[in-house]
Structures are given as structure tokens and as C-alpha cells.
């Protein structure tokens, strides 16, 4: 479904992605783990088209998309729940969800919104409140819900568990697992590597802008080198 070949990206003169090659197959949950500054967020932003790339290519269903502007990539079926949630604070929960479906004009927007409400009932309760006033966990649910409103084929999730209580982390992870049942392919970036690899089919470990390790989620979890370097387990 998604194929990234030799992707490079830089902030000014500092190269953050130094030739990343990876692929995601339809129906998979793929985790992208690695330490701070490894380039995980940059990679997701480059996939959505909000971070310029300096080399390499991105193929989506076999077609190159790396020259398309962000809204055309949303049209193709790639949406993102960004790092730090980035909800539209001065707008209501409902408006945030509606804007997630900004590129759509079909009649199912209302029923898709209700599905998000079923998935995260707290959002239904707070539908008329401003998103800026929600708690961190509720904003995270809203950010994921907003990305789902775009009817993604490929959902990019950037640090969905950051700063949340363990209980909420479990709830978010359960939600991600349930997405797979709906046929949505997920590329998940996490600092919480052990949790991410536990629910992922496959994983990639990113190290200073390059893929250092790759394999099945369970295999990476068991790999002594990955354990020592990224999971904080001896």
C-alpha cells in the first residue's frame, strides 16, 4: 500500500531523514519506534506533505504522491493525527470532527461522526464544548477521531499515548487495534516502544534518520539489541 524509498528531508542544513526505506501493506498495523530526534515525526509529516523532502520517493498504491500538496494526499486516503494533538482549540468538538471530513461532501459524514462518538463516548458528551478546554486524553481522542473523519485508507498516528495516564493509553491502544478490524491500515509512531510493538504486526526502529532494525513486532520486542537500546529493558 505504502512504499517509501530513500526518503530524505532536512530542516535547513540539518538532515533529519537520511534515506529511509520502508513499506506498509494493506491491513497492517506498523509501528515506527526510536528515540527523540530519530526523525519519526518528520517522516509522518513528509508523508502528509507538510514537511518538504529533499530526496527519495513515496508511492501510495503504486503511484508517486511525494509531489502532491497535502489536501490531495487527504483525497487519496492518507490522514494524520499529529504529535501534540493539535486540535482546533477555539472550535467545538463537533466542528473539529466536521473539519476532519473537510474534503468530503457525501451524506455519510453524520453517521461517521456518530461512529467516532461510539468509539469515544466522552466526545459525544462534550460535543458542543470547545476543543481547547478538553483534557489531554480527550484531545487525543478528538485528534484521532478527526483523522478518522477523513475516511482514511492509511491512518498516520503520531505519539497517540504521549502524556496520557496508563488507563487512557490502554483505551487508545484498544481503539487502534479495533481500527484494524475496520480495514484501516495504521502507521503508528510511538516513544512508548514496547506498547506499540506489542500491538503491531511489524515494526521499524528508526535511528538518527535511518532504519536500524526491522521485523515482526514480537521479534523486535524480543531482540536483545533493540531491548537494550529502545525498550529500557536489560
Amino acid at each position: 500500500m505504502l512504499e517509501i524509498k530513500g526518503l530524505r528531508s532536512a530542516y535547513g542544513r540539518i538532515e533529519v531523514l537520511k534515506g529511509v526505506t520502508l513499506h506498509v501493506e494493506t491491513g497492517e498495523v506498523v509501528a515506527l519506534v526510536g528515540s527523540n530526534g530519530a526523525g519519526k515525526t518528520t517522516l509522518l509529516r513528509a508523508l502528509s506533505g507538510v514537511q518538504p523532502i529533499t530526496g527519495g520517493e513515496i508511492l501510495f498504491n503504486g503511484e508517486p504522491i511525494h509531489r502532491l500538496p497535502p489536501h490531495r494526499r487527504v483525497d487519496r486516503g492518507i490522514t494524520q493525527s499529529p504529535e501534540g494533538r493539535q486540535v482546533f482549540g477555539p472550535l467545538t468538538v463537533e466542528d473539529n470532527l466536521r473539519l476532519g471530513a473537510y474534503r468530503r461532501s457525501d451524506k455519510d459524514i453524520g453517521s461517521d461522526r456518530d461512529r467516532v462518538f461510539t468509539m469515544f463516548p466522552i466526545l459525544a458528551e462534550k460535543r458542543h464544548l470547545l476543543a481547547g478546554g478538553l483534557s489531554g486524553g480527550q484531545q487525543q481522542m478528538l485528534a484521532i477521531g478527526r483523522a478518522l473523519m477523513g475516511r482514511p485508507k492509511l491512518l498516520l498516528l503520531d505519539e497517540p499515548s504521549l502524556g496520557l495516564s496508563p488507563l487512557l493509553v490502554d483505551q487508545i491502544l484498544d481503539a487502534i487495534v479495533s481500527l484494524r478490524k475496520d480495514g484501516i491500515t495504521v502507521l503508528l509512531v510511538e516513544q512508548n516502544a514496547s506498547a506499540a510493538l506489542a500491538i503491531a504486526d511489524r515494526g521499524y526502529v528508526l535511528e538518527t534518520g535511518k532504519v536500524a532494525y526491522t521485523g515482526a513486532g514480537s521479534a523486535l520486542l524480543a531482540d536483545p539489541q533493540v531491548k537494550a537500546a529502545y525498550l529500557g529493558i536489560e
Binding site: 497535502p70 489536501h71 482546533f88 473539519l99 473537510y102
Partner: peptide, 14 residues
């Protein structure tokens, strides 16, 4: 309004 509130997120929703 969304663009005013958060440009990055606005671009991400298309």
C-alpha cells in the same frame, strides 16, 4: 477559523 487556530492541523485535514 481552523486555519487561524492551527495552520499545521488545517493542512493535515486537507
Amino acid at each position: 477559523l481552523a486555519t487561524a487556530a492551527n495552520r499545521l492541523a488545517a493542512r493535515l485535514v486537507g
